[in-house]
Amino acid sequence: MELLKVQELNKSYPSFHLEDVSFSLEKGYIMGFIGMNGAGKTTTLKSILNMVHADSGYIEIMGKEFKSHELELKQDIGVMLGDMDFYVKKRVKTLTEVVKRFYTHWDDTIYATYCDRFNIDEEKRLCELSTGMRTKYALTLALSHQARLFILDEPTSGLDPAARDELLEIFQQLVEDGQKSVLFSTHITSDLEKYADFITYIHEGKIITSTTKDEFIDSYAIIKGTLPQLTDELKELMISYKKNDFGFSGLMKTNDHSHDIESDYTSERPTLEDIMIYYAKRGRTHA
């Protein structure tokens, strides 16, 4: 069952357009929503949550159209958009006391369990918590109201590698029961190598692809060769390329046509980072 379905989402700003953004997320999976800074990740997530008014598009969450069931569905969604930078001078317990009133399925026992597990000191003020602890607190709130879909905007940014890994492990544990899903945006691709099941890649407001992580990586190849081998025909086939003293390397989509090319050149499996970098390079070249 799809917990989230986004169809042909469009939003225009004077200098940026979100164009026909479509993807879906099944129950029990983690989806990494990746893209460079300014690619449209936050705008997409905010449009999903109706915080930004999309010009057109259709959002379905847990089988229901989001706009007409917004309040009911928000009861089942855990949201964290950026750093938890509101009411930072308030104590954790004061914030919790306010937040819990808004959720019909709030469970104090679950809340206490996660506070204990994440070592959240309720007497502390929010500003006294580290970035990682604030993220854990946001997750604790979401888990305590028994959210099934977690929409998190760059939850790992600003965290040290150990804290990032710990957080991603928590995501993994969240989806283990097969009932919950996590959609989180990031531009730190190493976050996704180990933990993401699906990748949705957005570039300049357009979804390049939304598929399983392995399919996504397998759909690209890095081609390397000498400079004389860098023909105009090859340049056209590549997403972008880099030249150096020893030759060139470029990213291309794997398809029937590319098999012939791959046999003539050195071919490597790219990393997620490679894919993002070559797309960014294409953006700069085309700009």
């Binding site: 915080m51 949201v79 950026g82």
Partner: peptide
């Protein structure tokens, strides 16, 4: 940052 806080709530 009250507006961000409210945006999070149902």
């Amino acid at each position: 940052n009250d507006l961000s806080f409210l945006a999070m709530l149902p």
